[in-house]
Design a protein around this nucleic acid. Structure first.
Lengths: 276, 276
DNA sequence: CTTCCACCCTCCGGTAACCGGAGAGTCAAA
DNA sequence: TTTGACTCTCCGGTTACCGGAGGGTGGAAG
């Protein structure tokens, strides 16, 4: 029969703190083999050391406990691998993102603020094929691939040539998830098509900034446009639109991308300095 | 004079949620330009959009608020750059670590558990030059560089040739920070030296595992040794020792490193299966 | 056989950076 | 004046634990 040890010993064996072991017991992730009914003392079996080690190592990876549980409970090696790989992917995406933002931040702090050209435009209402959904900000990349993939198919089939775009609700930005509509303009009498919606985009005034280059430093243009709008315009409510003038569909080089960021405003200011 | 806006508008302008703006007000990171004394309504100036944007972008980098505050309050660009760079470094270290552990985890899950050879040994008490300190687990790498750098100097000066090592208190592992002593064995009558202590390491029985290769998958050997000790030995209290048989000082190739991990036990088990 | 001390227990509160909701007050248009 | 959108404060919850208070246990020493 296997030997049993107290929390303290188990802690030394596994390098998990006693508090942590209490916690894992409480949430049912790693329960001691037995608990003395009168004293409440926990007793762990030496065979549990291995599981505890696994948990500790996963936690060192900053893997959330629910996922740790999934790995620990996983019956087959396949689903373990899967959870693990998903976590690794997430971490790597995070690092890539971090690197991008740091780079653009460094520029922002050291360089003079790039003179961002802002123009004002009235965009009339128009009809479009649309793919809409409630999207997490983190997953916007893959969602766009999906949405524009579908729109691209329809466009190719119907021979539509137009600049596609997307409308992002405020919540998408402020709450990190919200309604997004990817759209492809069509004629006002366009017939519905399988697999996409037919949406009507309302007209209105917009302050528009052109972002050149990859999507990684979008934030900078957004920030600058936000500042500009705050300073010179009366803001309107409603989703912000992006128009993908030159995008992934038009060539492989992200440096050549051109995106128009359209911020809804109430009217066109009489002069750029009118409110400054 | 600059225009002022409500929280809601400011939220739309900056893509920070109202809740977040409340929070930043409360902690004094970004206070509104004015607060209506009767209604409590916050009013932000459009010129504050820029700071808010900066904060948002730093937060997107997962930079802790105290550091954000440091960047925002920084008078000169130099100290901004510094904080930024420190953060970037930390993130990259984290990723590298993540990658390492994932790799070794993948092995652990897919491969058969490597047959870890464990031997038992009585190590008599000995005297050593020591560098000790309370060390954070995160900073163990640079601390070791410092400690063994100093020990190396002394060794070179005195012509001492011995396998150096380090003793890690339990708290170092369980609490992520604790006492660590780097040591270099010397003769029992060794005279004290400037810049290092003279320490006496107690003798005792140890279960010893030899870890071959770089330090990145130390965890695996530790886990295996922990499991082994739990299964077959009576554990003793006291710090775990590492002996750097072949280490960074002996050659540039991490793959050739050899480290003995010494786990204190009460006595040598009569047979490996004695307790199994 | 007691006494000691290290160990163990549970419960409560706190951490970071907010989110969600309740309940109530405010503002501007209709 | 009424509606409805907006705002306020306060309270509790989130994750994965840590720290401490107050009090019970267990094995060894005296």
């Amino acid at each position: 029969m296997t030997a049993t040890v107290t929390v303290g010993e188990f802690s030394r064996l596994t390098h998990l703190s006693v508090k942590t072991l209490h916690h894992y017991h409480e949430i049912g992730l790693l329960a001691p083999a037995s608990v003395d009914p009168s004293s409440g003392y926990r007793r762990y079996e030496t065979s549990q050391v291995e599981v505890a080690q696994l948990i500790r190592r996963l936690r060192e990876l900053r893997m959330p406990l629910p996922e740790v549980r999934a790995v620990v409970d996983a019956a087959d090696g396949g689903s373990r691998e899967e959870t693990l790989r998903a976590h690794l992917d997430r971490m790597e995406r995070e690092l890539a993102h971090t690197r991008d933002v740091v780079t653009s931040l460094r520029e922002m702090l050291t360089l003079e603020p790039a003179a961002l050209a802002v123009e004002y435009r009235f965009i009339p209402a128009f009809r479009a094929y649309g793919v809409s959904g409630h999207v997490e900000r983190e997953g916007i990349g893959s969602w766009c691939e999906f949405a524009f993939g579908r729109l691209g198919e329809i466009a190719a089939r119907d021979g539509i040539v137009a600049t596609s775009g997307a409308a992002y609700s405020d919540e998408f930005f402020t709450d990190d998830s919200g309604q997004v509509v990817a759209f492809l303009p069509v004629a006002p009498d366009q017939a519905p098509a399988e697999g996409v919606e037919l949406v009507d985009l309302p007209g209105g005034f917009f302050a528009i900034a052109v972002h050149t280059g990859p999507f990684t430093d979008f934030d900078r243009s957004y920030g600058a446009l936000g500042s500009h709008v705050a300073e010179y315009c009366e803001v309107a409510t409603g989703p912000i639109r992006e128009l993908y003038v030159v995008g992934p569909g038009d060539g492989p080089d992200p440096a050549s991308y051109r995106t128009e960021i359209c911020w809804p405003i109430r009217q066109i200011p009489t002069s750029p300095a009118a409110k400054g």
